[in-house]
Computed example of a mutant assay.
Amino acid sequence: MSEGTMQRRAQRDQRDDQGAAPAPYGYGQRGKEQRARRLRALAGAAAVPVMLVAAGCSSGDSGSGGESDGAKASGTQTPSSVSASPTVQAAAYRKLPKVCGVLSKKTLEDLVPEAKSGKEGTSSDTSTRASCSWSSLDNNGVKGSQFRWLNVSLLRFESDATRGEGDRLAHDYYEKQIKDAKAVAGAKNTKAAPVAGTGDEATSVSYDLKKKEGAFKQQTVVARVENVVVTLDYNGAGLAGDKTPDAAELTKAAQKAAKEAVAAVSTANTASSSPEPSASTSASAEPSASASKKN
């Protein structure tokens, strides 16, 4: 081989080396550097979602003023969402007197002179509901007879956290009793008037009622004292031709008896005789100011 030929082959080999393709990825120094750069880029991209997930969890737990998702899921109440149990003022009067003893002997002699004793009504709890009635027939033979009938009913209301205070419940019942007295079937000449000096409020309702036995004059006095309602019914009639009693006299007698019955309720609940308040009443045991004045 000549010297010229050898020089041309050397130049061709040098050109081939300069134009040759780079070594495959992963081989050689340059491939190692490219692979290292790609691994670092992938590691950085993977870290971004992790940071976003962590930030999302953090924002859910620390919302401004709200409960955490865990607290909502479990139904746990925060202290600010818990309300206090409702309470009501305890009823001033906690018992009833012996109902057949609320009227004096003299009052009974005036209203029902022929009555021997009172008949107590049936009650499942005489501390909250009681009644007593008396009947009198003064037989004058051929001149006829005078009939009188008297009934006293007592109803006491306890304070209740759901329904309200005892005196308010008693007031509602008081108004219902008056309404019922005014709406008696067959009643004529119905009149209603307030009664002074009898409990906290009192009303007298009078009317005429004709029955097969004769013409009756009916008097109903409804009174409320604190959480107790007193309803007194009194009527009279002249039978077998005897004269009809005077309505004004019967009204006066009924109002006097109602005032006496109200006083008996208050006396039965004086401080010295009052029992301890019921454990079921979620209210203060102090009686109201008006009760203190009465006692």
Rank of each mutant, 00 (worst) to 15 (best):
residue 20 A to M: 05
residue 210 K to N: 14
residue 192 A to K: 02
residue 235 N to G: 04
residue 14 Q to F: 11
residue 60 G to L: 15
residue 189 N to L: 06
residue 217 K to H: 08
residue 194 P to N: 11
residue 33 E to C: 10
residue 41 A to D: 07
residue 108 L to F: 00
residue 268 A to C: 06
residue 49 P to G: 07
residue 236 G to R: 00
residue 24 P to K: 11
residue 178 I to M: 03
residue 5 T to D: 12
residue 182 K to L: 04
residue 158 E to D: 15
residue 267 T to K: 15
residue 98 K to Q: 10
residue 220 T to M: 14
residue 171 H to P: 04
residue 168 R to N: 13
residue 284 S to E: 08
residue 64 S to D: 07
residue 201 E to S: 10
residue 21 A to T: 06
residue 272 S to R: 11
residue 31 G to M: 03
residue 259 K to G: 14
residue 177 Q to N: 05
residue 134 W to T: 08
residue 110 D to I: 02
residue 288 S to Q: 03
residue 146 Q to D: 15
residue 196 A to T: 09
residue 76 T to C: 07
residue 169 L to W: 01
residue 61 D to R: 15
residue 257 A to H: 00
residue 255 Q to Y: 13
residue 165 E to H: 05
residue 161 A to R: 12
residue 188 K to P: 07
residue 178 I to Q: 01
residue 211 K to I: 09
residue 37 R to H: 14
residue 176 K to P: 00
residue 181 A to K: 00
residue 66 G to L: 13
residue 292 S to H: 11
residue 16 D to R: 15
residue 3 E to S: 09
residue 230 V to S: 02
residue 77 Q to F: 07
residue 263 A to I: 07
residue 45 A to I: 14
residue 108 L to C: 01
residue 227 N to H: 10
residue 107 T to V: 04
residue 189 N to Q: 09
residue 232 L to A: 03
residue 262 V to K: 00
residue 85 S to I: 13
residue 169 L to K: 11
residue 234 Y to E: 01
residue 280 S to W: 02
residue 88 V to C: 06
residue 135 S to N: 12
residue 29 Q to P: 00
residue 262 V to Y: 01
residue 237 A to L: 03
residue 165 E to F: 05
residue 168 R to Q: 12
residue 33 E to H: 12
residue 115 A to P: 00
residue 171 H to T: 15
residue 22 P to A: 02
residue 51 M to G: 15
residue 238 G to D: 03
residue 242 D to G: 11
residue 151 N to Q: 06
residue 291 A to F: 03
residue 13 D to A: 15
residue 83 S to D: 11
residue 258 A to L: 10
residue 113 P to H: 02
residue 46 A to Y: 07
residue 137 L to C: 08
residue 79 P to Y: 12
residue 288 S to F: 00
residue 114 E to W: 09
residue 172 D to N: 13
residue 275 P to E: 03
residue 77 Q to T: 12
residue 226 E to G: 05
residue 141 G to H: 04
residue 188 K to F: 09
residue 217 K to G: 02
residue 225 V to I: 07
